[in-house]
């Protein structure tokens, strides 16, 4: 995946490079100060992800056949899958958030799968992307929870049926538990994708290193087999993490709709 001087370096694949810059915000005008706003390779792959999703859904549902063709069936299966997930974990009322959950799922899934192509950039391997997605969910939960339940949303921190004298201990614990959600939500996605890609790259690098080591070259088959197996596993992880992110989004939205355990 890396074509620089050191092909074994596993972190190079996550490097951000600017294609063109729009200018800088802040700073004192000197070189390297302020925040540079640029169209990066990460931004490019986000745009590509959105284009692929939009193209797939628009083209596949254009026929609107009563008996769906292959592509339409695929699109309908995506719809059904997420719709069932939302209904099971957030109730029928949660279908209000179906477009949100569907967008999140498709974006993460396609971005992860894009990352499986050699030389492609993996958008979700950067913490900031995962954190923004998780914060979007978190803020939606908080805002909608207060909108819908008013102060009843605080019932989320007060489990029913506990005596008053342990309340002072339980409420802070529940509060920290609630605040930790966006953290674990984003860390999981980011960590899985990052770790998977690094491990894949390390085994790929071992193949290269062993092939270059003369008499040791036949041993290269071992890390090669590992890399092949891990590639399969990574496809699974890519789909599973998108699924887990969407499921947890539904679970959190359920708390906004029905606070109080």
């Amino acid at each position: 995946m890396a074509d620089n001087a050191n092909p074994i370096e596993p972190i190079h694949q996550f490097e951000i490079s600017n294609f063109f810059t729009f200018g800088t915000i802040g700073g004192d005008g000197t070189e390297g100060s302020g925040v540079e706003i640029a169209f990066t390779n990460s931004a490019l792959f986000m745009v590509l992800t959105v284009l692929v999703i939009a193209g797939f859904l628009i083209l596949s549902t254009r026929g609107r056949g009563l008996v769906p063709g292959r592509m339409q069936l695929l699109a309908e299966m995506c719809y059904e899958f997420i719709a069932n997930m939302v209904r099971t974990s957030a109730g029928t009322e949660g279908m209000r958030f179906f477009p949100f959950v569907f967008s999140l799922f498709m974006f993460i899934l396609i971005a992860n799968l894009f990352g499986m192509f050699p030389y492609f950039f993996t958008v979700t391997s950067h913490l900031i992307v995962a954190v923004m997605l998780a914060l979007m969910v978190f803020i939606t939960v908080v805002v909608y929870g207060f909108m819908r339940n008013g102060f009843g949303f605080f019932k989320l921190f007060v489990p029913s049926g506990i005596p008053w004298y342990v309340m002072w201990l339980v409420v802070p614990i529940e509060f920290i538990s609630f605040l930790s959600r966006p953290l674990s939500h984003s860390l999981r996605l980011f960590g899985n994708i990052l770790a998977g890609h690094i491990v894949l790259k390390v085994f790929g690098g071992m193949v290269v290193a062993l092939l270059a080591a003369g008499a040791w070259a036949p041993l290269a088959i071992l890390p090669f087999g590992m890399a092949v197996a891990l590639t399969g596993l990574e496809f699974l992880v890519a789909a599973l993490q998108a699924f887990v992110f969407a499921v947890l989004t539904c679970v959190y939205l359920n708390d906004a709709i029905h606070p109080g355990h």
């Binding site: 920290i176 605040l179 930790s180 959600r181 674990s184 999981r188 960590g191």
Partner: peptide, 21 residues
């Protein structure tokens, strides 16, 4: 099959709460 995924899920839940606290 995904024991690793399970482990990662639980570990991140645990660590996230400690970091947040």
């Amino acid at each position: 099959m995904t024991g690793v995924g399970r482990a990662f899920r639980l570990a991140s839940e645990f660590i996230a709460a400690i970091i947040m606290g």
